[in-house]
């Protein structure tokens, strides 16, 4: 059994230092690894990223993260990534990593993802260059997620987890206004997950959404945005892994 702790949308700023650390320090009692599903900061500034880095530095469980749209706002995602990496966090963007947990290998494939919407109500790669660029960005992200999951399949992992910021399914957006679904996720991410296979998909981004969902291919999806789970993190036990 693998115990996966996860949270997203912690939106840390200078006034946040130390708020999550007490709960994170209890992680070894209840989880084998911690996933951070993006929007770790408010504006993506180095100052905010240092707060996040300090909050997770030297935790006794592996920490794997993707960035969210807020973490890009200051247009320094490389700096945010570097500060988190310096604190021991593995930051994924279109890549996979394998974490060893008590003799078991867990594969995590991560990407921020992007919007576009869900089947029958989605944006197409058509028309103005800006519109095509928007959809291509999502497609590129989904392709990288699929490739990373496929590569993990050959690395002897007992379980594979897809980690994104944007949602792969509409299920976990329930509670958000329908009109903004295309800005909250894309079915292309779910298609990538179903094509490559995964044991769990974790995302954030939708603060007013709901926790539980599933892809068309039957992969469980969990929205771990902190306003949704109303905890420092949630823990998912993957049976048989």
């Amino acid at each position: 059994m693998i115990r996966v702790a996860a949270v997203g949308d912690i939106h840390m700023g200078p006034d946040s230092q130390g708020l999550l650390r007490p709960a994170f320090e209890t992680l070894p009692d209840c989880a084998d690894l911690l996933l951070l599903a993006g929007d770790l900061t408010r504006h993506g500034t180095p100052e905010e990223a240092r707060v996040v880095a300090q909050e997770v530095r030297d935790l006794p469980v592996p920490v794997v993260a993707v960035l969210g749209n807020h973490d890009h706002h200051d247009e320094q995602p490389e700096k945010v990534t570097a500060l988190l990496q310096d604190a021991g966090v593995t930051v994924l963007e279109g890549q996979g990593t394998v974490v060893e947990c008590a003799g078991t290998r867990v594969g995590i494939a991560g990407t921020k993802g992007f919007g576009g919407g869900f089947v029958g109500r989605s944006a197409g790669e058509f028309g103005e260059p800006l519109m095509k660029e928007f959809v291509r960005a999502t497609r590129h992200s989904a392709d990288s997620l699929r490739t990373a999951l496929e590569e993990l399949a050959g690395q002897g992992c007992a379980a594979r987890v897809a980690l994104t910021h944007f949602s792969p399914v509409a299920d976990t957006l329930a509670g958000e206004p329908l009109e903004i679904y295309p800005f909250l996720g894309s079915y292309l991410l779910a298609e990538a997950i179903d094509t490559a296979g995964a044991d769990l998909a974790v995302h954030g981004h939708a603060h007013l959404g709901s926790e539980h969902g599933m892809t068309a291919g039957g992969v469980r999806v969990r929205n771990v945005a902190q306003p949704v789970i109303r905890r420092a993190f949630n823990v998912y036990q993957l049976q048989g892994a």
């Binding site: 209840c30 905890r231 420092a232 823990v235 036990q237």
Partner: peptide, 15 residues
């Protein structure tokens, strides 16, 4: 307006 709860969970979900 609610302030986010930073408590650890009291149970895990079995999948």
């Amino acid at each position: 307006i609610v302030v986010a709860d930073n408590a650890r969970p009291d149970h895990a979900e079995e999948l």
